[in-house]
Simulated scan of single mutants.
Amino acid sequence: MKCAIITGGSRGIGRAICLKLAEEKNYHILINYTSNQAAAEETLAKVQELGSTGEILKFDVGNAEETQKVLGDWQDKNPDSVVEVIVNNAGITKDGLFMWMKHEDWNNVVNTSLNGFFNVTNFFIQKLLRNKYGRIINMVSVSGVKGTAGQTNYSAAKAAVIGATKALAQEIAKRNITVNAVAPGFIKTDMTYDLNEDELKAMIPANRFGEAEEVADLVAFLASKKSSYITGEVININGGIYS
């Protein structure tokens, strides 16, 4: 069975990606979540409604031991399953000015985005290399590309994942595995719910927030065979926010 894993797949952009990949029916969808079980179950139900198959995997991507255990158990139970697509989408924000930033707010944000990328991708990487095919898609952010005041921790974490994307892409391109990053701007999700949309729209040439489905369309393209000559790229999807 061919599988795609989406970390932080229960809500927002992660859910939209699960549903888009489910629509295409190429993959059994592995939906990772950390805390919101109801949302994860809802996403799985929607995946099944679209005629695809899937399952839920509960683990914190930032916790190396837990990630290893849950994915190891899954692989043992599914020896013939191959994960071809990895979407590293899990991320958290703990915004605040750097001068007042708490140590744990720095660590938690960096741990989820950066170490989460390592923990999940590193678990599967040898299998991808043996299989000589794969798609790794890292969700970053406009914050990681240009930096955002009040988000030094998040900007640092996402910028680090961009660097990792470019390096890993060069290491494994010969094995027909692509590694790309997608950098959304302001997208309508729970994460941006508290932002003043009317005020911020003025900064965006497209004059609106993006939809999670628009990001999912881009991710689905990068997850497909059509994108086989694109690797090491950071693709911005932000309505022209800093062009």
Rank of each mutant, 00 (worst) to 15 (best):
K25F: 05
F123E: 08
T192R: 11
I235H: 03
E233C: 09
Y242C: 03
Y33L: 03
V82E: 13
Q126N: 15
G210W: 09
T152M: 14
Q170M: 13
M203Y: 13
S141D: 04
T121R: 07
E24G: 08
L218C: 03
G91D: 06
A40W: 01
T93V: 14
N122K: 15
I17E: 01
I92A: 10
K146W: 14
F221Q: 01
K94T: 12
V85R: 00
A167M: 09
I13S: 06
M99G: 08
Q151H: 07
K225A: 13
G116I: 09
Q170V: 06
F209C: 08
N207S: 15
R135A: 03
I5Q: 00
G62A: 14
L168G: 02
K127V: 12
G8A: 04
L114G: 08
N138W: 06
S243N: 11
E213Q: 13
K127E: 15
V61G: 05
V140I: 14
G150F: 07
S81E: 14
T189D: 10
E199F: 15
V110N: 00
V82F: 15
A164Q: 05
A223R: 00
N63M: 09
I125P: 10
N107C: 11
T34W: 00
G9Y: 04
S113L: 10
F209W: 14
T178V: 01
A183G: 03
G163N: 07
K225P: 13
Q48E: 15
I162H: 06
E233W: 00
E24M: 13
V82S: 11
M203K: 14
A164C: 02
F118N: 00
S81C: 15
K2E: 13
Q68N: 15
L168P: 01
G232T: 02
K132Y: 12
A157G: 03
N196I: 09
G62L: 09
T178E: 04
E199A: 15
G210A: 09
N32G: 02
D190T: 10
A45H: 12
Q37F: 05
D105S: 07
G147L: 11
V70P: 07
A156W: 13
G14Y: 06
S81I: 06
A206K: 11
Q37W: 00
A39M: 10
N153H: 11
E65M: 12
V47T: 02
E65L: 14
T34G: 00
N207A: 15
Y27W: 12
M101I: 10
K25Y: 03
T165S: 08
S227M: 02
I204S: 01
I241C: 02
Y33F: 15
K25Q: 13
K225F: 04
N131A: 12
T67S: 14
G8Y: 03
V83N: 10
E42F: 09
A45K: 14
E55W: 05
I237A: 01
V140K: 01
L57K: 03
N89S: 03
F209G: 07
